[in-house]
Simulated assay, not measured.
Amino acid sequence: MRIISFCADGIKQATQNGFFEWVVEQDADIICIQDLRCQEYDLTDNVFFPEGYYGYFFDSPSGVNGVAIYVRQIPKAIMTGLGFGESDMHARYIQADYDNISIGCILAPDVADGSPTAVEEKAVFFDQLAGHLNKIRNKRREFIICGNWQMAHQDIDLQSPEDNEDCSGFLPFERQWMDNLYHELGYIDAFRTINNDSDEFTWWPNGERGKNGWRVDLQVISNGMRSTVEYGAAYKSKEFSSHAPLIMDYDYELISG
């Protein structure tokens, strides 16, 4: 099973940069896209609905963010939102449920302006998300949650950690949250199970590759998926947005039988 996750910075612009031309050649079973910056009804060209895929969208009322998940096999159910009330409005989440596994696509809250209010909203969202992830880990199914988590975990995940210690996305509470996710809740950073290189970044905030890279685009998996990870790579040969697509392969059958 191949899953590609990509933060588009606007799906129309990414498409003009060749994203869909590239992604349909990757033979992915699931494609998770974040930060659409438009509504589904704005996507009138066939390029946004590649042959062989079923697309599901969760728009933002303001059109600012929005997420989508494209699948080859129709899921048993699609879930939108996390039920967090007000803090849900600062993020986007869509999930496809299959027999024994759920694939989520998440765009975490952005704190680009660095305001105390925005930082607090992000903290509230992640507190609620931790509770949700703790609850679902007891379900008899596996989870893969893909997307732009808007934060990096360790120094190895930043090109210049010493210059970003006070930046949103690498604040102490955010790094502690990631510690708890992996060490207490038992989830796993799929990419790091097979690659511990210190130069693997997926986002360049200033848009210039090679400078101030961050690894914020993750596929977080439940513990039962650890042994299924076969391959992982950030595709950097061509730029579709300020983020690089993350490709992960799993030894897993999406639909049993």
Results as ranks from 00 to 15, higher is better:
70 Y>F: 15
122 K>H: 02
48 F>D: 06
134 N>G: 10
52 G>V: 07
91 A>H: 11
106 I>N: 07
116 P>I: 02
61 P>T: 05
93 Y>L: 03
115 S>T: 15
54 Y>Q: 12
80 T>K: 15
137 R>Q: 13
92 R>Y: 08
97 D>N: 14
132 H>A: 04
51 E>C: 05
60 S>G: 10
45 D>W: 03
102 S>T: 08
135 K>I: 00
112 A>S: 14
101 I>M: 12
85 G>H: 12
84 F>Y: 05
93 Y>I: 01
60 S>Q: 09
45 D>K: 13
132 H>R: 13
119 V>R: 11
57 F>E: 02
66 G>Y: 03
120 E>D: 09
120 E>A: 09
46 N>F: 04
69 I>T: 13
127 D>K: 13
89 M>S: 07
113 D>I: 04
113 D>E: 14
67 V>S: 04
135 K>S: 09
109 P>V: 02
73 Q>H: 11
46 N>Y: 01
60 S>D: 13
101 I>S: 10
132 H>D: 00
113 D>A: 11
85 G>T: 09
58 F>L: 11
104 G>E: 05
147 G>F: 07
124 V>N: 12
117 T>A: 12
102 S>I: 01
124 V>I: 14
62 S>V: 00
79 M>L: 13
94 I>D: 01
55 G>H: 11
89 M>R: 11
68 A>H: 07
78 I>S: 07
53 Y>D: 07
73 Q>Y: 09
57 F>V: 06
84 F>I: 02
135 K>D: 09
123 A>N: 08
53 Y>E: 03
111 V>P: 00
59 D>V: 02
122 K>V: 00
145 I>H: 03
81 G>M: 04
104 G>H: 05
129 L>N: 01
68 A>D: 05
126 F>K: 05
88 D>H: 10
132 H>E: 13
112 A>D: 09
114 G>F: 09
58 F>P: 00
65 N>E: 02
138 N>L: 12
111 V>Q: 00
131 G>F: 01
114 G>M: 11
144 I>R: 10
146 C>K: 04
133 L>K: 02
55 G>I: 02
103 I>S: 04
52 G>F: 08
119 V>Q: 10
91 A>T: 09
104 G>R: 03
77 A>K: 15
109 P>A: 04
56 Y>D: 02
81 G>A: 01
47 V>S: 02
86 E>H: 06
93 Y>W: 12
83 G>E: 02
48 F>I: 07
107 L>F: 14
139 K>V: 00
49 F>I: 00
110 D>E: 01
64 V>A: 11
47 V>W: 08
113 D>R: 11
136 I>F: 07
145 I>D: 03
86 E>T: 11
103 I>L: 10
70 Y>Q: 06
105 C>G: 00
76 K>M: 12
140 R>G: 00
86 E>Y: 07
85 G>I: 05
76 K>L: 13
110 D>P: 00
66 G>W: 08
67 V>Y: 11
53 Y>F: 15
133 L>F: 10
140 R>Y: 04
58 F>Y: 15
56 Y>M: 04
140 R>V: 01
139 K>W: 03
119 V>Y: 01
118 A>R: 13
100 N>A: 12
142 E>T: 00
107 L>N: 08
73 Q>T: 11
139 K>C: 04
81 G>T: 02
146 C>N: 10
90 H>R: 09
49 F>T: 09
56 Y>Q: 03
104 G>F: 07
55 G>D: 03
108 A>S: 15
98 Y>V: 10
130 A>K: 14
139 K>L: 11
75 P>I: 01
86 E>K: 14
134 N>W: 06
139 K>Y: 08
